[in-house]
Simulated scan of single mutants.
Amino acid sequence: MFAADAASRALGIRLLASGPGSATAAVVVTETMLNGQGSTHGGHVFLLADTAFAVACNAAFSPTVAAAASITFLAPTGLGDELVAEAVERVRQGRSGICDVTVRCGDRVVAEFRGNSREVHPRAQRPE
């Protein structure tokens, strides 16, 4: 799934590890990722966490999408910082799941993300 994620790859996000219900992704903050105050734009932190969430949810099941997500920003980061997002699926019941993602810069936790996932049925194949 990550190989087809053009948005994440275009921003330099790297997939470090993945397995059923887990994933780790990282990115180095570049100048184009900074907000008007000189810190990492929250949208980029969210995108990194969302990428790890998506990979974790899609590692072992049918195609899965985000039904909802929220993030709490805890500390700022800036130019040259490497952000690492670790996603762990907490529960999956039927077609729904909950996944938590911790974003760190070194040993410091900079954001906590929670995503709700929903497994979608593969589209019916059309006769050719």
Rank of each mutant, 00 (worst) to 15 (best):
1 M>V: 13
3 A>F: 09
3 A>W: 06
4 A>N: 13
5 D>F: 06
6 A>W: 11
6 A>M: 12
7 A>H: 15
8 S>Q: 05
9 R>V: 05
10 A>D: 13
10 A>W: 10
12 G>N: 04
15 L>D: 02
17 A>D: 15
18 S>K: 11
19 G>S: 10
20 P>C: 09
20 P>E: 15
20 P>W: 09
21 G>T: 05
22 S>N: 12
23 A>K: 00
25 A>M: 05
25 A>V: 01
28 V>N: 10
28 V>T: 15
30 T>Q: 15
31 E>Y: 11
33 M>E: 07
33 M>F: 09
34 L>C: 10
35 N>D: 14
35 N>G: 12
35 N>I: 13
38 G>R: 09
40 T>L: 11
40 T>K: 05
41 H>T: 08
41 H>E: 06
42 G>R: 07
42 G>V: 04
43 G>Q: 06
44 H>R: 04
46 F>N: 04
47 L>I: 08
47 L>C: 08
47 L>N: 12
47 L>F: 06
48 L>T: 01
49 A>C: 11
50 D>F: 03
51 T>I: 06
53 F>M: 03
54 A>C: 10
55 V>A: 04
55 V>F: 03
57 C>T: 03
57 C>K: 00
58 N>W: 02
59 A>F: 02
59 A>G: 08
59 A>C: 09
60 A>D: 15
60 A>S: 15
60 A>I: 10
60 A>L: 06
62 S>K: 13
64 T>I: 08
64 T>W: 01
65 V>L: 13
65 V>C: 08
65 V>T: 07
65 V>H: 07
65 V>M: 09
65 V>N: 08
67 A>D: 01
67 A>T: 01
67 A>K: 04
68 A>K: 10
68 A>W: 02
69 A>M: 02
71 I>K: 00
71 I>L: 02
71 I>M: 04
72 T>E: 11
72 T>P: 01
74 L>G: 05
75 A>H: 07
76 P>A: 15
76 P>C: 09
78 G>F: 07
79 L>V: 11
79 L>S: 09
79 L>H: 14
82 E>C: 13
82 E>F: 05
83 L>W: 00
84 V>Y: 00
85 A>T: 04
85 A>S: 07
87 A>H: 02
89 E>Q: 15
90 R>T: 15
90 R>H: 10
92 R>M: 10
92 R>D: 05
93 Q>M: 12
94 G>M: 10
94 G>I: 06
95 R>Y: 04
95 R>C: 04
95 R>Q: 12
96 S>F: 14
97 G>E: 00
98 I>Y: 07
99 C>D: 05
100 D>F: 04
100 D>V: 12
101 V>I: 08
102 T>K: 10
102 T>W: 01
103 V>R: 01
104 R>G: 06
104 R>P: 06
108 R>D: 12
108 R>I: 09
109 V>T: 15
109 V>D: 07
109 V>N: 09
110 V>C: 11
110 V>H: 06
110 V>Y: 05
111 A>N: 02
112 E>P: 04
112 E>H: 14
112 E>T: 13
112 E>I: 14
113 F>W: 04
113 F>V: 03
115 G>P: 02
115 G>K: 01
118 R>K: 14
118 R>D: 08
118 R>W: 12
118 R>H: 13
121 H>A: 14
122 P>G: 08
123 R>F: 06
123 R>H: 10
123 R>Y: 03
125 Q>G: 09
127 P>V: 12
128 E>A: 14
128 E>R: 14
